[in-house]
């Protein structure tokens, strides 16, 4: 039942999660993830047929906001946290579609 995590899987998850692991980290990550999945596979012992997946723990519904503008302009304060700002905008490396 042991989960063997391949290099490709670690590579793929790295793309999804935007994480770049060193060779050393990759070896550790493969082992850790394999161990965790082995452990998680314990859930397969449970018969959950017909059980509704519970995404929300309480049956609370319909929480809304009215369509009224109340927010002002806080951009100056917020932009102070940005690593790089130009023309009141957040700067990122050149991005082409």
């Amino acid at each position: 039942m042991a989960n063997i995590i391949s290099d490709e899987t670690i590579e793929y998850v790295g793309i999804l999660a935007k994480l770049e692991l060193s060779e050393e980290e990759k070896i550790r990550a493969k082992k850790d993830m394999g161990d965790m999945l082995d452990y998680i596979d314990k859930l397969n012992e449970l018969d959950t047929a017909g059980v509704e997946p519970m995404s929300h723990v309480f049956p609370v519904n319909n929480v809304f906001r009215e369509d009224i503008v109340v927010n002002g302009d806080d951009s100056e304060q917020m932009l102070k946290n940005a690593p790089e700002v130009k023309d009141k905008s957040y700067v990122v490396p050149r991005t082409v579609d």
Partner: peptide, 8 residues
């Protein structure tokens, strides 16, 4: 599976 387990 985990969400179902949570329900149980």
């Amino acid at each position: 599976k985990a969400l179902r387990t949570k329900a149980l």
